[in-house]
Amino acid sequence: MTIAFAPSTVAARSSETRAMSFAFLAQIILILNSFVMLYPVVVMVFSAFKSTGEIFEHPFALPDFTQVQNFARVLGETSMPTYFLNSIVVTGVSILLILLLGTMAGYAVARYESRTNTVVLLFFLAGLMLPLKLAVIPLFILLRDLSLLDSRWSLIVTYTAIGLPSAVFIMAGFLRSLPSELEDAARIDGASEPRIMWSVMLPLARPPMAIAAIQNAVPIWNDFFFPLVFIQTDSAKTLPQGLTTFMGEYTTDWGMLFAGLTIAAAPITLLYIALSRQFIQGMTAGAVK
């Protein structure tokens, strides 16, 4: 018995060890990677609590987290709160519009059979291929003629247009994969078409919506290009553009700059943490049955 079993046990054990050591290696790589990723973030947050002198003396030392005067000054003495609010409004409204319109268009493309479906989808796909930055001059003229220039709306409509193609694509792909019997069941249960979308499809579509939201929110939040072209008034500026004016004025005060950056980076980081579960679910949906 022992003899008969010995080889297979050894084989099993060695393959087990191999799998173990592979997992171990993967863990090490991931841990190292997270250090590399987190290092600048940590330095940024630490420096935000230090004076410029402290930053140059002890760049890596743990700061005294009760020293919030940098934050107080950034929020009190600069236009930072306005920029911050503008960024929140622009990103928030754009994402809401992208999700709302993208889901509705995706649903229509995925579910209602009509000849125009393919055309509509191709139209959106074309938008995916085309970098909108190339069209910035006609876009500028268009927004000027609509008298949207130099307002938050100029950014919102542009971002919504940029985000829609991928959102429609993601949503249509996902909604198409949901069994149509679900809709039939809801139809028999007495749900109207909007109700089917709202009560049955949308709750199931949360993972792809999270993907569409995150995937658009980060570039919109960080975008520097369109505000630079469209916005002149200080009261309509968003964070990335606002922070640049900041750099000129306060180059000597690194502590304040880092405090500003920390505030600028916080919302999107929090959003990512909040949605990461849905995000991962969406990414792996279908991979694991």
Binding site: E181, L182, A185, I188, D189, P203, L204
Partner: peptide, 25 residues
């Protein structure tokens, strides 16, 4: 009322909610 081959239960609702959906509507 119809029973489908794939059952077509609403995945995001509990059994009770599934059964009550039509009544609620």
């Amino acid at each position: 009322a119809m029973v489908f081959q794939s059952y077509a239960l609403y995945p995001h609702m509990t059994v009770a909610e599934n059964m009550a959906f039509s009544l609620k509507l």
